[in-house]
Write a protein that binds this DNA or RNA. Structure first.
Length: 590
RNA sequence: GGAAUCGUAGCUCAGUUUGGUUAGAGCGCCUGCCUGUCACGCAGGAGGUCGCGAGUUCGAGUCUCGUCGGUUCCGCCA
């Protein structure tokens, strides 16, 4: 054997091991050669251990130690001894290992960046050398958490009679919703598989098959643009249950989340999460995934200003729009520049502008004050509960846009006013429910499913299906924590007639339905039980547990925002032979 | 599809506003010294395709256009 195997991990030695002979394997973090004394920090997944060589007694070892460099892989044998001056920053800092022998197992090139937690190396370099980046304890910790989450979920669902069943990765393309990644078929030239955006239809069919309770931790794929919290391949905790109503799915999910938070962070979460209808979430917080760690509620001003002299408000209301406001407490001191930045934010979200009113020293300072009479201003002040020192921000637009813009402003105000710093360590879980079943797609001039086309309408809204589809609410629910969507699900349609009706409302023709979803509606005709489920974003759960906003931190080998993997260079061209076998024509762009 | 921002030594960045001699700093690296360091210290040294390509100019790291790449956001993400 070319090396001596470890008898202990680098993170393990403590005072109780003093005088023990041990062998360690690991990576050289750092060498401090003081001439008459050499310190080596050795690192593995479990921690960092200080080794010491005393040249006075170990001339040969000291001689060889000069060749030790960062990230060399070594074995080292020696005796644990107590340190007179402990390093209290390290768990192993009360002891050190006096080296009696060691050997280099493998050398390493000089790394492009130091393998340490507090580096500020660019994302580009770190992703090129992802294997070095992943050696950093701060990143390894996140994968330890991720592994904990896998174990907890598997045990929890298994204990509750769920079966993990693998669904295909090569499946039929369903062009509703996100873009599919396509995989050409060699055997069936000109035809394509798609990678699953989610195993939605398979898990519903498993319910038809009587599997009753299904879960799977599964990779999903969406060929859409990336964000700091969005990757083209991501992991979902996919769950489906038969003979259930909304409560059953929510309760089961609450149990899973509580268990994770308890076991990973030691935090007790309330048994029942607050539930909030979509309309309330939007009109109070301007988001379908509101951050409820702080209040800052929005207020509607439509009635108060519908007859006012400011034509921007009045005309918009006449055209069916609304006016709403956010009272930024204590923000009257904001400079013109700061307010301009807020206006730009509002415009980014599609607003035409942002009206503002500063309440200071009993007076109102506002560019729109001259269009309003005293009664208007008094009403606005009363509804927004504005006091001296407050800044009221007002948006006037269509319902959804008004609230979406104010929702973005609300978050910005929370950041600017220091609210965010106070709530960093808090978790606020809740459900958003009663989503609209459809939303109108102006571009396509038709209704599209807001959640997905297999979501059941609420029973009490069924009568509206034919007359006012946009008023129909769905048996759908999203799990939200701290302003981020952790997952969502619904009770599904188990009646093939209702399913067909929904497809019709979405303006899908008979033939189109048959071609796209025929196999599925057919399955529903053979005894489908009532069923429903949920899909949780596993990456987002781990992100929340680890307190990171970046999904790349919790995925071992992530893509950049342009969808590239900088380490292995994919996607990459393939040679013409491969393309020919797939009957794909080479396009010569020259 | 769109916007913002960044790209200069192995790494992090200054220099670009207002074009002008030999492009700097910190860390790292190399050599030497050093017996209690733990961001070791001290002395010396090496190290550059200023992302890439055109253009303007007597002259471009600096100005213009294009292009590649990183990051963030809008659209998109049932």
């Amino acid at each position: 054997m070319s090396f001596q195997k470890r008898t202990m991990k680098c993170g393990e030695p403590r005072e109780e091991h003093v005088n023990q002979q041990i062998t360690l394997n690991g990576w050289v973090q750092n060498v401090r050669n003081l001439g008459g004394l050499i310190f080596i920090d050795l690192r593995d997944r479990y921690g960092l251990m200080q080794l010491i060589i005393e040249p006075e007694n170990q001339a040969e070892l000291a001689q060889r130690a000069t060749e030790l460099k960062q990230e060399f892989v070594i074995w080292a044998k020696g005796t644990i001894r107590k340190r007179e001056k402990p390093n209290q920053k390290m768990p192993t800092g009360y002891v050190e290992m006096l080296v009696s022998d060691y050997g280099i197992i493998n050398r390493a090139e000089l790394p492009p960046f130091e393998v340490s937690d507090d580096i500020e190396t660019s994302e580009e370099i770190k992703l090129q050398y992802r294997y070095l980046d992943l050696r950093r304890p701060i990143l390894q910790q996140k994968f330890i958490v991720r592994n904990q989450v896998y174990q907890i979920l598997h045990k929890y669902y298994s204990d509750n009679d769920f079966l993990e069943v693998e669904t295909p990765v090569l499946m039929k393309s369903t062009p509703e919703g996100a873009r599919d990644f396509l995989v050409p078929s060699r055997i069936n030239k000109g035809k394509f598989y798609a990678l699953p955006q989610s195993p939605q239809l398979y898990k519903q069919i498993l319910m038809v098959s009587g599997f009753d309770r299904y879960m799977q931790i599964v990779k999903c794929f969406r060929d859409e643009d990336l964000r700091s919290d969005r990757q083209p391949e991501f992991t979902q905790v996919d769950v489906e249950m038969s003979f259930v109503e909304i409560d059953d799915v929510l309760t089961m999910t609450e149990g899973a989340i509580r268990k994770i938070w308890k076991e990973v962070l030691g935090i007790e979460i309330e048994e029942k999460f607050r539930r909030m209808p979509y309309v309330e979430a939007m009109s109070k917080y301007g988001s379908d995934k509101p951050d409820l760690r702080y209040d800052l509620e929005l207020k509607e001003l439509t009635d108060a200003v519908k007859d006012c002299g400011f034509s921007v408000f009045a005309d918009n209301i006449k055209a069916g729009g609304i006016v709403a406001a956010l009272n930024a407490k204590g923000c009257a001191e904001f400079s013109r520049k700061k307010i301009d930045e807020l206006t730009n934010l509002a415009k980014k979200y599609g607003a035409k502008g942002l009206a503002w009113m500063k309440f200071e020293k009993g007076e109102v300072n506002s560019p729109i004050a001259k269009f309003l009479n005293e009664q208007d201003i008094a009403s606005i002040k009363e509804i927004t509960k504005a006091e001296d020192g407050d800044l009221v921000l007002i948006v006037s637009d269509k319902w959804t846009r008004t609230y979406t813009v104010l929702g973005a402003i609300r978050i910005e105000i929370a950041k600017l006013s220091g609210i965010y710093d106070k709530i960093k360590d808090k978790f606020s879980f809740h459900w958003v429910t009663e989503f609209p079943l459809f939303e109108y797609d102006e571009e396509a001039d038709r209704y599209v499913a807001m959640h997905h086309a297999f979501t059941s309408p609420m029973d009490e809204d069924l009568h509206n299906l034919d007359t006012a589809p946009d008023k129909v609410r769905a048996k759908a629910y999203d799990l939200v924590v701290n302003g981020a969507e952790l997952g969502g699900g619904s009770i599904r349609i188990h009646d093939s007639h209702i399913q067909k009706r929904i497809f019709e409302l979405m303006n899908l023709g008979e033939e189109e339905i048959e071609a796209k979803f025929g196999y599925f509606t057919k399955a529903l005709k053979y005894g489908a039980p009532p069923h429903g489920g949920i899909a949780l974003g596993l990456d987002r759960i781990v992100m929340t547990l680890c307190g990171t906003d970046n999904i790349r931190d919790v995925i071992a080998f992530p893509k950049t925002t342009s969808g590239l993997s900088l380490m292995d260079g994919c996607p990459s061209p393939v040679d013409n032979m491969q393309l020919a076998e797939l009957a794909i024509k080479v396009i010569d762009e020259k």
